[in-house]
């Protein structure tokens, strides 16, 4: 349903996507797109949605090229990373507004009930907590029942109850035969829901396959450890504390941990 051919994108001098070839054809499948910060996950997703315009390569959704098109997006439900809405509107106003702009929502009541949003419907969006906004965000994204679902960091800010609801929802959608793409940094979530993972590194597809295959390849039984293992082999792009000591190969890079420490102190 989605194919990417040699997709390349640079922001200034920063080459974010360096020729991505991927296809997602099987419906009823959940694919987790993983990778360190800045590996191009969000850029890839946004390219599929036509929000980012790649310089090279082509993307098709349902056999339709996406470049300069917009109608194909009616086949996609997208959950953006940050939930920020017009603060003066109430939740129900926002929902009816989105429904008015994009007709065809069929599941809003069901989702409102499942996430317990009823008491918040008349509240202004500016007064909601981050987690509640995320629930509204999920409801807005999922109320259309489209064949393709794309979630960018769906778990951010959710409490355990909402997290359970979200996992159950994603599983149900999978069983109903939808194609689901998820990006997240929570490996437990990936292990629980994903059928396969795509691991992006420095703008390229480093690995694609079932979770177990990645574990076998690195030789550990824990997904988080497996991912960390890969990142240690490719330390340049990472700046998380446990991998910075690996940056010591290059004399200039050797200064980075010290800089980080002094930056933290400051």
């Amino acid at each position: 349903m989605i194919t990417c051919n040699n997709v390349q994108k640079a922001f200034g001098k920063n080459q974010v996507l360096q020729g991505i070839d991927l296809d997602f054809r099987e419906s009823g499948r959940i694919t987790a797109i993983l990778g360190p910060n800045g590996s191009g996950k969000t850029t890839l997703i946004k390219s599929i949605l036509g929000m980012v315009l790649p310089e090279q390569g082509s993307i098709t959704v349902n056999e339709q090229p996406v470049r300069k098109q917009w109608a194909y997006r009616s086949a996609i439900d997208y959950l953006p990373q940050i939930a920020r809405f017009p603060e003066n509107l109430t939740v129900s106003e926002l929902m009816s507004m989105i429904k008015d702009i994009r007709p065809g929502a069929s599941r809003d009541q069901e989702l409102i009930n499942r996430f317990g949003l009823k008491p918040f419907l008349r509240k202004r969006l500016g007064n909601l907590s981050g987690g509640t906004k995320q629930k509204v965000n999920i409801t807005l994204a999922m109320m259309y029942d489209s064949p393709i679902l794309i979630f960018d960091e769906p778990t951010s800010g959710l409490d355990p109850v909402a997290m359970q609801t979200l996992k159950a929802l994603i599983q149900e959608e999978k069983e109903r035969g939808k194609l689901i793409l998820v990006t997240t940094h929570i490996m437990q979530f990936v292990e629980e829901v994903a059928d396969e993972i795509v691991f992006l590194l420095e703008g390229k597809t480093y690995f694609r396959g079932p979770i177990q295959a990645l574990k076998d390849r690195v030789g550990v039984d824990d997904l988080e450890a497996a991912i960390a293992g890969i990142l240690r082999e490719h330390p340049i792009v990472v700046a998380s504390p446990d991998t910075t000591r690996r940056i010591s190969a290059n004399p200039i890079r050797r200064k980075i941990p010290g800089l980080l420490t002094s930056f933290k102190k400051a």
Partner: peptide, 10 residues
């Protein structure tokens, strides 16, 4: 951010 939400719609 809201514009981004709209941009993902058809």
């Amino acid at each position: 951010e809201f514009t981004e939400l709209l941009l993902a719609q058809p």
